[in-house]
């Protein structure tokens, strides 16, 4: 464990908690893409199956359980409890265009052709593009609530910190995982446009609005 991975995990946890609290407290999921949240629940489910097979540390196990629990709770709030506030008309990204290619690629490019490894690879590739429905929805509505931008900021920051963690681990431990690194770079690049808007607008107290 190094400081970059720890702050990355805490940034990820912060994002997940911010979103869950935003929906719970405002009793509304307006502006939130339910499709992205379903994809994240799929990411955690397929990646953390090793909860049943391997014990790494209390930290590792408890964080995985928290991530899975919060992501399913968020999906439940969006599609069940606060379904009336779900903005289905703007959450129209065709997720099959993400899941099918990612599924195919995880069979073609992986470290080991075993079920757990293919599911892990699928989850790594899926996480890289899981935010696209959310970013697409914001581009369609032309704006985002400030709390939603903070959620996206911490979510994008987490994988950027993981990139630094992988540099650190390669240098100090000779450890690297090319699949995770390439997917992590793609994932972080997808946030660059948002990061620019976040820094130039939200941090200056303005509302995030895109030229519609």
């Amino acid at each position: 464990m190094n400081i970059f991975r720890l702050t990355g995990d805490l940034s990820h946890l912060a994002a997940i908690i911010i979103l869950l609290l935003k929906i719970w407290k405002s009793r509304s999921c307006a502006g939130i893409s339910g499709k992205s949240q379903i994809l994240f629940a799929m990411v955690f489910t397929t990646r953390y199956l090793d909860l049943l097979t391997a014990y790494i540390s209390l930290y590792n196990t408890s964080m995985k359980i928290i991530y899975i629990g919060c992501s399913y709770a968020t999906v439940y709030l969006i599609y069940a409890k606060f379904k009336a506030t779900y903005d289905g008309n703007h959450d129209t990204f065709r997720v099959e265009f993400l899941v099918v290619p990612v599924g195919g690629l995880s069979f073609l490019v992986n470290h080991d052709f075993s079920p757990l490894e293919i599911l892990w690879t699928f989850s790594i590739y899926l996480e890289a593009v899981a935010i696209l429905p959310q970013l697409f929805m914001i581009s369609k509505t032309g704006e985002a609530e400030t709390i939603t931008t903070h959620y996206l900021f911490f979510l994008g920051l987490y994988r950027a910190l993981y990139l630094i963690n992988w540099v650190w681990r390669f240098y100090f431990e000779g450890f690297f995982d090319m699949i995770a690194i390439v997917a992590g770079v793609v994932q972080t690049i997808l946030y660059c446009d948002f990061f620019y808007l976040y820094v130039t607008k939200v941090l200056k107290g303005k509302k995030l609005s895109l030229p519609a």
């Binding site: 991975r5 995990d9 990820h12 090793d50 391997a54 790494i56 540390s57 590792n60 964080m63 995985k64 991530y67 470290h111 080991d112 892990w120 993981y162 963690n165 000779g174 450890f175 690297f176 995982d177 090319m178 995770a180």
Partner: peptide
């Protein structure tokens, strides 16, 4: 390239 596929990350 020393590649170890350790799954100790979240």
């Amino acid at each position: 390239w020393d590649h170890i596929n350790r799954k100790d990350e979240l």
